[in-house]
Design a binder for these strands. Sequence first.
DNA 1: ACCCCTTTGTTTAGGTCTTAAGGAACCATA
DNA 2: TATGGTTCCTTAAGACCTAAACAAAGGGGT
Lengths: 402, 402
Amino acid sequence: MQRPTWGADVTRTAVLALIGAQGPVSRAELARSLKVSAALVTQLTRQLIADNLLEELDVVPSAGGRPGRLLGLTSSAGNAIGVKVVADHVALVEVQIDGSVVRSATEQFDAFAPDALDRLSRIVGAFLAGSTRPLLGVGVGLPGNVDVASQGVVDSSQLRWQQYPVGQTLRRDHGLPVLVENNVNALTMAERLYGEGRHHDSFLVVTLGTGIGGGLVADGAVVRGASGAAGQIGHVPVIPGGPACQCGNAGCLEALIGEQALVATARERGLRVGGGIDDLRALADEGDAAARAVFQEAGELLGRTLAGVVNVLDPEIVIFLGEGLAAWRHWAPGFEPAFRSGLLPQLRGIGISIESWQDDRWAQGAASLVLATPFDTDGRSGEQGRLVRQRLVDQSLAGGRP
Amino acid sequence: MQRPTWGADVTRTAVLALIGAQGPVSRAELARSLKVSAALVTQLTRQLIADNLLEELDVVPSAGGRPGRLLGLTSSAGNAIGVKVVADHVALVEVQIDGSVVRSATEQFDAFAPDALDRLSRIVGAFLAGSTRPLLGVGVGLPGNVDVASQGVVDSSQLRWQQYPVGQTLRRDHGLPVLVENNVNALTMAERLYGEGRHHDSFLVVTLGTGIGGGLVADGAVVRGASGAAGQIGHVPVIPGGPACQCGNAGCLEALIGEQALVATARERGLRVGGGIDDLRALADEGDAAARAVFQEAGELLGRTLAGVVNVLDPEIVIFLGEGLAAWRHWAPGFEPAFRSGLLPQLRGIGISIESWQDDRWAQGAASLVLATPFDTDGRSGEQGRLVRQRLVDQSLAGGRP
DNA sequence: ACCCCTTTGTTTAGGTCTTAAGGAACCATA
DNA sequence: TATGGTTCCTTAAGACCTAAACAAAGGGGT
């Protein structure tokens, strides 16, 4: 029952992530930022220093009391690969142990092809070959349901995959630990480790892209739900008997304000949006009132629905992510009033964070599966976690002192 | 970060609760039921036996292997008082350490009176005087926001209380530990400990009564949310610009299918429901089609809204509780299809549990605040928890061997 | 009788985290 | 100079939990 959620042992990874993101930091600062006792930081950093992942650096000028000793990353231990799979392409990144991206690529892909899995494996293999550093493992994020991250058997209606042994195949072909997860869960994990979510113990992640996704963090841990499907904000029923949704139901939020729905609405209203959502955004950018109205109405719907979710979950903050944010300024006029007015009065002050979006973010999320794993000592990520750990130790011993 | 949620240490209490509810049980059975390692059960039961709360009984006939030793409650250690406060009355119960109710009472009350708090205290005092057993403490459940259970400062629009020092007052007057919580959270805790929720690690509690309430349990712990307000299912916005709700917003679920709303709707349709919801239910029971339609439509709305919540949270099961369940068979025809059809296909098999309702259930929930507390050794319930613990130890030492 | 199997329960070692208490290093001011 | 206040960090003790190994107590088949 102790921290039974998916989410590995966030704390040690969070130490590395914080140092990676903010540069060298003192132990005291670490304890404050991570909302963890100073004693624990002492213990963890001792281990990390012993493992050659951290090193003591300068002393900080002192601010009234004893000066702190800065801790910095050695960051020579190994990188991780993140893979994002969607229907028509694959994005890959190589990240350092602190979560920063050092290399990325995008490859065409056809998920519907009969040999999709083999092709995916080849694409991953080619990317792996380009790495100059020792690798800890591969994280894969994709739209769909994953049994358990450590196994990696995938069901995805979006990719038309049924019981695809993604994890097994990649492991076999490349001899690296492989962790597979739903893409939004992976992204939520990354957000918790490296993003705005670092500063909050419970938050809601909303992704605006082709679809509408959501991730939940409560008490510091990613909530997977009973069947690993928590967070499906896009499939909250909004309009009874509304347009059909991919999921098989009708009137889901996603069926109303997903990319396709927006474009369809625009087309109905006589707008020229042959090129899809980008055209619609371009029109709105140019000041086209009808285009703006499409976004604004979508914003209202999103705001009202999200208000309900927030009323139920009472998170500290809501974080928006995704490609769709490029048009956020057109959503906002509809979203803000609808959202605030739907919130319970005492929640009305809740913060929202629109994170700037880089396209490799999804893949970075996948990589964080690997980066979170080495420290999951309870084996919640199973055999694959043990392997990642093994590789990490090997390499920090080998690469540390010559 | 270790089990940071509200919710005390469920495990030890759960041991007592299970034994209380199911009678004597072997250690191995405990471990299985509570999904906890056998080693832990050994440790916990050793402590509980040492504390004179449990005792070893007979041996079970054996089923192929070594026979188990049954553990039973001594249940002489002390009782707890649960108090449920609503606008016009107060319900009180005395429960044993296993959660079973031994005594109950209901008193008239006027929460709007200027001296409401003193009167509440007198009511509690009179009930306390009727107890023949040593008491561990008092738990209070009420509709509204509570800062922290251990402090007990209450804001409640429903009771028109602002910053009422409920905990402090009762403590001062009666010299007992007092824990105060939102009523639905308290009920959810009781459900987790003594109800259907024992068997599930994540579930949703929905209360149907004057209002519509909700409680969340994820990974075994009650989710309070960032500001202690999680679970407000009743205030999910459903119809934009709909009828005004107590909370200040418009079109909330509760404003549409709360008791008052149902009665109002019935009245609009010419039904004679002067006596309120009971009349409406009586009509429906008699077969009045219009009355049934009111319930059925409400069921549809509830079903659709709840489907959204379930899609987002992915709980194992949904548990319904509350006075309103008396009319459930009239809700069900509307609820079931709307609920199932709003669920994501893979969640469609989710279980729902309609728990039979006893009116002292709310108060029992409040009492479970106290019963959960003695084992909250990390002091999450603060000073009051320490006091309850103290009393428990004192009495098990004093009352144990004569 | 004997041996193997199953189930129950305990021990041990270990990991994660916390509070409490105190030592270490620096500042300011009397 | 020394005295106290800060801030940083560590030590020590202990709660909660688990996996693994083992001990204990019964079957049943040969």
